[in-house]
Design a protein around this nucleic acid. Structure first.
Length: 746
DNA sequence: AGAATCTAAATTTTT
DNA sequence: TTTAGATTCT
């Protein structure tokens, strides 16, 4: 545990492996340091080496370094690499995400903001539901002012370190007729009543405590001698305030980042934080890392040429740091429509595969999540394995959230949000009216919903017999499981809970194709639970850390958004959909104007710099948008790529189209398409009757006595047919009357 | 209480 | 086109 007796005389080999700039960044230990690390310049290596260097030179014990990242992945990686350099596991670190570290501090000092140390951390879904309740109670018209809108306003305030008291009336949003601030205050009060904190609170409360409790602040000043920050360009104001408070005094703060890769302003990140660093921290040393070890010269030149169109940069030019940096020009491929684009990408991937390139080195990076579908379909057709990175996270899945809600109620009966989620899942006949009665009693008695449920289940009046018994049964269950917990341990108890509550049975009965996967996920959840000492520890972990660890291994093409691709690299990168409106996104431009355009451009820069050897940009003249074919013109970013590093290709279909029409096509005339020619659309309606088209003659007319399958009710036998209504005796769900189009032959 | 039907809306999402 | 949410029907 103690550092080596003395620093080695010769530079240790971990330093010898660095270039001069990297080494300066590692060895400048005292005072504020800003490391401007361009894409592919060894940022992570600098950060981890610096951390290790602090320990090796005995400047600090592991517990005296505060190291902050944005993602759990980055935190894990840093820990692993520091351990690798030191040749041993390091323990007692304050290394983690802003939120995880915030939570850790807040648990120690929760009472300063009216919480208890065992507060629950709410996820986004809970947050919105709670806010909705608050708005509803205040008589806000939720149609006119949807809760997610106010949630965004509140989050932005929290991102800026503004408690309700700190929001000045002039800063009040006009959301909900200028009542936003008042609603925010009520929402915060509700959180306190529930002993809960949302993600934003983890930093907001912690910063507020550091601001107002000098002895707490002093405690941390004594504790941390050095601060390391990753991805500084993505910090928001409250994170900045938090860091500045903690760094006050010794000023030993080292921030690593790249202003050209700031792409999260819509989440409250303030690029100004990094632009202002030298003013905020006087006497700061700035180190620029510009030697890129990742990409070929043409890729770097194209990316540099593009990003040069942005104003207000700190200024940095990537230089090729590899000896073998020569390579192919960036391809820009013009295509007739989005289907052709997907085909082109598929074909080139097949070619690459035949040429022996591993699929794990190929990525398709899109602006928005929905764009992945077209490529998925194409890859499935071609039989090319792929994975979609990002997307639905493990803990956001319905069955996981339900199971977690059960666990939360088990651990904290007062967790109303969790209770409400599971009270009627599986269906227990406890509908709106029962829930309303629970809320009412809880309000009158100032108790939790669970406590109200106990009372209502026991009292003879207030509820009809059936719901009352169902409720009593559920509450008996919880009493039993809670008693079982210390005896059998959390894993066994939770397993029992999920079985006895009928939750697993619900999915076993479910005939939908996803059901088996959901049961699998529940098993996975239990496995994960087993890795923790206690239920509370696990719930904390889940709220802060749980992510989809979908097997990254294997020979698969990666499909993801540009945002998700930051920090990754691939030999071959496809960048489809570079069209005005899509990329840059019209929505962004409408909201953020010139600033937003620059952020979109940074996103393009991030995309290009993911490629080691080949980048293929493409755009289509026609694209289906929400089901309608729409004409589009190439993205302005394409013109901004320096010509000499780009090779333009027509694309096979585009050429064919030109040949067939004799037209210059979409990209010959200055204003794009003269007439938005629609790609051939299937026109089934013109020949057939509407009925035929709409309901393609039920080839499978269902007759009495047949076995059928229904999405909700599962398998059953038809008892009677009456026009389009069928009476069916379901195996599990009893006899019901359903519409014929909801069943199919079994 | 629960299913069927209608209706708007539609990025990016490290925690 | 797809999807979530609200509304209406049974």
């Amino acid at each position: 545990m103690s550092p080596p007796a003395s620093p080695p005389a010769a530079p240790p080999d971990y330093l010898a492996r660095l270039n001069p700039e990297q080494r300066a960044a590692v060895e400048t230990l005292d005072g504020p340091v800003l490391v401007l690390a361009g894409a592919g310049t060894g940022k992570t290596r600098v950060l981890t080496t610096r951390f290790a260097h602090l320990l090796v030179t005995r400047r600090a014990f592991p517990s005296q370094v505060l190291a902050v990242t944005f993602t759990n992945k980055a935190a894990r990686e840093m820990k692993a690499r520091v351990s690798a350099i030191l040749g041993r596991e390091v323990e007692g670190l304050w290394l983690g995400t802003f939120h995880a570290l915030g939570a850790r501090m807040l648990r120690r000092h929760a009472e300063h903001v009216g919480l208890k140390g065992n507060f629950t951390i709410l996820d986004t879904d809970d947050q919105t539901r709670l806010l909705k309740q608050v708005m509803d109670a205040s008589g806000v018209d939720l149609k006119r002012w949807p809760a997610p809108g106010l949630m965004a306003v509140v989050q932005r305030w929290k991102d800026r370190g503004l408690t309700p008291e700190r929001v000045t009336p002039s800063e009040d949003s006009d959301y909900a007729n200028g009542r936003a601030r008042a609603l925010y205050a009520q929402y915060q009060q509700r959180l306190r009543d529930l002993n809960a904190a949302d993600f934003g609170d983890l930093l907001l409360h912690t910063t507020e405590i550091l601001r107002t409790e000098p002895e707490v602040l002093a405690q941390y000043h004594r504790a941390f001698r050095y601060i390391l920050v990753d991805e500084y360009q993505d910090t928001n104001l409250v994170q900045y305030l938090w860091l500045r408070l903690l760094a006050k005094g010794h000023g030993n703060i080292c921030c690593v980042g790249d202003d050209d890769q700031s792409i999260y302003s819509w989440r409250g990140a303030e690029i100004e934080n990094i632009l202002r660093f030298e003013k905020d921290f006087p006497d700061a040393k700035v180190v620029r890392l510009e030697r890129n070890y990742r990409s070929t010269r043409p890729i770097l030149a194209a990316a540099s040429g593009l990003i040069a169109h942005n104003a207000g940069r700190l200024g940095k030019t990537l230089r090729a740091g590899r000896d073998d940096a020569e390579g192919e020009k960036v391809r820009v491929v013009a295509l007739w429509d989005s289907e052709e684009e997907a085909r082109m990408v598929g074909e080139r991937i097949e070619e690459a595969q035949r040429a022996g390139h591993p699929l794990s080195e190929v990525a398709i990076l899109v602006r928005a999540g929905f764009q992945t579908r077209a490529f998925e379909e194409r890859l499935i057709t071609l039989g090319i394995p792929y994975r979609v990175v990002g997307g639905a996270r493990f803990y956001e899945r319905q069955e996981i959230r339900d199971a977690l809600a059960y666990m939360r109620v088990l651990a904290q009966p007062s967790d109303d949000l969790a209770f409400e989620r599971i009270v009627n899942v599986p269906k227990r006949g406890l509908g709106d009216s029962t829930i309303r009665a629970l809320h009412e009693l809880a309000r009158i008695e100032k108790s939790s919903l669970a406590a109200a449920a106990e009372r209502l289940a026991l009292s003879p009046d207030g509820l009809r017999p059936r719901p009352r018994q169902a409720l009593a049964e559920l509450m008996r269950g919880f009493a039993r499981w809670r008693e079982q917990l210390p005896r059998d341990g959390h894993v066994v108890t939770v397993a029992t809970l999920l079985d006895e509550s009928g939750y697993t049975e619900m999915w076993k009965q479910d005939r939908s194709p996803e059901a088996p996967g959901r049961l699998e996920n529940l098993k996975e959840l239990l496995r994960a639970l087993g890795e923790f000492e206690s239920l509370a520890g696990f719930l904390d972990h889940v709220a802060l850390v749980m992510e989809n660890d979908e097997a990254a291994e294997g020979e698969r093409v990666s499909l993801m958004t540009l945002h998700a691709a930051k920090g990754l690299e691939f030999d071959m990168v496809f960048l489809p959909g570079w069209e005005e409106g899509l990329f840059p996104s019209q929505r962004s431009l409408d909201e953020g104007g010139e600033k937003a355009l620059e952020e979109e451009r940074r996103l393009a820069y991030v995309g290009l710099t993911r490629a080691r050897k080949l980048a293929v940009v493409s755009h289509a003249a026609n694209r289906r948008v929400y089901g309608n074919w729409t004409a589009s013109i190439p993205s302005r970013f394409i013109e901004e790529l320096p010509d000499e590093h780009v090779a333009k290709e027509g694309g096979a279909a585009m050429e064919r189209h030109r040949a067939a029409t004799g037209a210059a096509g979409a990209f010959g005339s200055p204003f794009g398409l003269a007439a938005p020619r629609r790609p051939p659309t299937p026109r089934i309606y013109e020949t057939g009757s509407w009925e035929v088209a709409e309901r393609p003659a039920r080839a499978e007319r269902i007759a009495v006595g047949e076995r059928v399958f229904h999405q909700k009710f599962g398998y059953g036998r038809v008892l009677a047919v009456e026009d389009d209504r069928l009476d069916i005796a379901f195996d599990k769900a009893g006899t019901r009357r359903v519409l014929d189009r909801f069943v199919e032959k079994a």
